[in-house]
Amino acid sequence: MEIVIHIVTVLVVLFVVLNIAAGLIWVERRLLALWQDRYGPNRVGPLGLMQVAADTIKLFFKEDWVPPFADKGVFILAPAIVMLTVLMSFTVLPFAPGMQITDLNIGLLFVLAMSSLGVYSVVLGGWSSDNKYSLLGGLRAAAQMLGYEVFMGLALMGVVLMAGSFSLRAIVDAQSKMWFIVPQFVGFVLFLIAGAAEMRRLPFDIPEAESELVAGFHSEYSGMKFGMFFVGEYVGVVLISALISILFLGGWHGPLLPPIVWFLIKMFAFIAFFILLRAGLPRPRFDQLMSWGWKIMLPLALANLLVTGAIVLAVK
C-alpha cells in the first residue's frame, strides 16, 4: 500500500512538473511579449493556450534526424540525461507539509549532485554532434557549469549552517520564524545568479548563444530530442525557482493561504523573475562570464560562508 502511494505521489509530481514546464513555454512567450508590448501566442485555443500542444505535436511529428557523422549512441543518450537529472532533483523537494516524495537527510547535496550530473548531457550532446559549433557549445557549458557550481554550493552552505541540516524539509522548518533571505541575502543573490547560470538561462545561455554558435550544443538536434533539451531547460527553471523558495523564502510558510499555494506563488514569482531576466538583460561575453564567476562570485560566497559561520558560532 505504501508503495502504491509512493508511486502515485511520484506520478503526480512528475505530471505536475512536466505540465508546469510545458506550460512555461506559453507563459514565457506571453510574458516576454507583455514586456515587449506585444501579445505573444494568442491564436491557438483560448488565449493561445493550445500553442503548447501545437508545438508539442509539431515536435513529435518532425523528422527525428540523427546526423550520419554523429556518434549515434551518445547523441541519443544526451537529451535523456538532461531530463533524468533534473527530474531526479524533484524527488527530494518538499512542496508542502506531507507533499514530498522522499525526505533525504542529504537532500540538498542530492540536488547539487544531480545538477552537476546534468552538465554531462550538454557536454556529451555537443561532443557527439561532431560539429564545431556544437563542440564549442559543449566546451563552454562545461567551463561555465564548473565555475558556477562551486559557488552555488558554497552559497547554500550559509543556509545549511543556519538550519543545521542538509534535509530540505528541515531547512523549510527552520524558516518558520524568519525566512533565510533576510540573514542570508548575499547567499540568496549568489544562488539566484548561479541558478540562472546552471540552467543556462539568459543572460547565461552562452553554450547555445545563437548569434555566435548557431544553436550551440544542440545545433544538430531536431524533433523530440531537441524537445527534451528544450523542456529540460524549463524543468530546470521550475527546479531552481522551487529551490529558491524552499531555501530562502520559507517554502510553504505563509499566512492564511494553504501551504501549497504559498509555495506555488513563491515559485512562480521566481519563474517570472527568470523570464524578466531574459527580457531585460543582454548576454555577456564568455570571458566576462568566467571572470565574473571565479573572481567575484566565488570570493563573495566564501566570505559569506565565513561570516555566517562566525556568527553562528558566536550565537551558539
Binding site: W35, Q36, D37, Y39, L276, L277, G280, L281
Partner: peptide, 14 residues
C-alpha cells in the same frame, strides 16, 4: 529590469 517590468502596463503595439 525595473523598466522592462514597467512595460507590463504599457499598451501593446501589435
Amino acid at each position: 529590469l525595473w523598466n522592462v517590468l514597467l512595460h507590463s502596463f504599457q499598451p501593446r503595439v501589435t
